[in-house]
């Protein structure tokens, strides 16, 4: 009975699940990316053609899509952090303790709306008759309404809306763990409010920012919905390029190669964030 207890084998089912349904499919996809479609049948030929076509496609669609993706994602991540940090700070230090939980849940409530519908509802807000145009007309900033949907601006706005909530959660969770006594000690040693924030609170909240920013990066760069609904037809992001290969042409080898490139970018981002990401038990 001694060998057959949870401490010994408890991790086995989860590891097996991850190995079979995560690691194996990734390997399958890697192999697929070196395959070719010959007469509509996919055969493993260890060709590099798929990667070559990523680089050399005459119209530059794929390299362009990668750059668009990186630009949109970096922009999204930075703006989301800038929007979320003050919000998390106010929730953690300005809202009275008894109300914090309620205020936090309220702040991230729209996080739970349908992801597809949330993107689409920005179209309502941004449309020519929408509330933003109405306001700008009323305020005299605009003479004629402008369509703000179907643009990179709309994509980034939709992303920031979602990820600012996610980042507020991770940063808040970090801020409330910083002990009051640290800031009090800084104050006793003569630091003013800004100095205490800059030298004590901000550095100690870096892990929360890093976790949230990393999740934002991964989820945004791989997202197909938001650019597809809000971005319009003017530019294409990498996930859209991948879906296009699967959907219209069933070109799995090329789609796999594009996905491997996407994974490479995410891995690079992980390296950047890795030092700051830590798992701790409380």
């Amino acid at each position: 009975m001694k060998g057959w207890n949870l401490k010994n084998w408890g991790h086995a089912p989860a590891l097996a699940w991850t190995a079979v349904f995560f690691v194996a499919p990734l390997i399958a996809m890697l192999v697929m990316s070196f395959s070719a479609r010959i007469d509509g049948k996919i055969t493993l030929t260890w060709t590099l053609d798929n990667y070559r076509s990523f680089l050399t496609r005459a119209d530059g669609t794929f390299v362009g899509a990668l750059w668009n993706s990186i630009e949109v994602t970096v922009l999204t991540t930075i703006i989301s952090v800038l929007v979320a940090y003050p919000l998390a700070y106010i929730l953690a230090y300005r809202v009275p303790k008894n109300w914090q939980r309620f205020a936090l849940v309220l702040t991230v409530l729209p996080f739970w709306t349908s992801y597809v519908v949330r993107s689409y509802s920005w179209l309502l807000v941004l449309s020519e008759n929408g509330i933003i145009n109405q306001f700008l007309l009323w305020a005299g900033i605009l003479d004629t309404p402008i369509g703000m949907g179907n643009s990179r601006f709309a994509t980034v706005l939709g992303f920031v809306h979602f990820f600012a909530m996610l980042l507020t959660l991770t940063i808040y969770a970090n801020l409330v763990q910083i002990k009051d006594s640290y800031r009090k000690a800084a104050n006793d040693l003569g630091a003013n409010g800004w100095q205490a924030f800059w030298y004590i609170t901000l550095p100690l909240s870096v892990p929360g920012v890093a976790v949230g920013a990393f999740l934002t990066f991964v989820l945004a760069i791989g997202d197909y919905i938001t650019p597809q609904i809000l971005g319009g037809a003017k530019e294409m992001l990498l996930p859209q390029a991948v879906m296009l290969q699967i959907g219209r042409q069933a070109d799995f080898p090329l789609a796999s190669a594009l996905s491997m490139i996407l994974m490479l970018v995410i891995t690079a981002a992980f390296m950047v964030f890795a030092k700051r990401l830590k798992m701790e038990r409380v």
Partner: peptide
């Protein structure tokens, strides 16, 4: 898996 896009 958290470091890999859902799409992938």
């Amino acid at each position: 898996p958290i470091t890999v896009s859902y799409l992938i």
